[in-house]
Amino acid sequence: MPAVSVALARRVPPPPDGATGRLAGVLADTHGRVHRDLRISLTDRCSLRCTYCMPEQGNEWLARQSILTLDEIEEVARVAAAAGITTFRLTGGEPLLRRDIIDVVRRLAAIQGPDGPIDIAMTTNGIALPGLLPALVDAGLRRLNVSLDTLRPDRFRELTRRDRLDDVLRGIAAAAASGLRPLKLNAVAMRGVNDDDLVDLVEFAGAHDAQLRFIEQMPLDVGHTWDRARMVTREEILDALGRRWTLAPVPGRGGAPAERWTLDGGPQTVGVIASVTAPFCGACDRLRLTADGQLRNCLFSTTEYDLMPILRGGSGSPRARLDAIDGMLRACVRGKLPGHAIDDPGFLQPQRGMNAIGG
Score class of each variant (00 low, 15 high):
M1K: 09
L8F: 13
L8D: 14
P15R: 02
P16K: 08
D17P: 15
T20W: 13
L23H: 15
A24R: 14
G25M: 09
T30M: 09
H35A: 08
R36L: 02
R36Q: 04
I40F: 11
R49G: 03
R49F: 02
N59E: 12
W61E: 07
W61H: 14
I73W: 08
E75F: 04
V79E: 10
V79T: 13
A83K: 12
T86C: 09
F88T: 02
R89P: 07
L90V: 09
E94H: 06
I101K: 06
V105Y: 06
V105I: 08
L108M: 13
A109W: 10
G113F: 00
M122S: 01
L129A: 08
L132V: 03
P134L: 04
A139T: 03
L141E: 03
R142Y: 01
N145C: 04
L151E: 02
E158N: 01
T160V: 01
R161N: 04
V168C: 09
R170A: 15
A173C: 00
R181N: 06
P182F: 01
L185G: 01
N194R: 04
N194C: 01
N194K: 08
V199C: 03
V202C: 03
I215R: 01
D221W: 05
D227T: 11
A229G: 05
R230H: 12
T233I: 10
T233H: 09
R234M: 09
D239V: 03
D239R: 13
G242S: 14
W245Y: 12
L247E: 09
V250I: 06
P251S: 13
P257C: 12
P257T: 12
A258F: 07
T262F: 08
D264Y: 05
V270S: 06
P279V: 12
A283Y: 07
D285T: 15
R288P: 14
T290A: 04
T290Y: 07
N297Y: 05
L299R: 08
F300N: 11
S301H: 13
D306H: 11
L307C: 06
M308A: 07
R312C: 06
G313S: 05
S315L: 01
G316A: 08
G316V: 12
P318Y: 09
L322Y: 07
D326G: 15
D326R: 07
D326A: 15
G327P: 10
L329Y: 07
L329H: 03
A331T: 15
C332M: 13
C332P: 05
K336A: 10
K336E: 02
P338I: 04
I342P: 00
G346V: 01
L348I: 13
P350F: 11
M354P: 04
A356T: 13
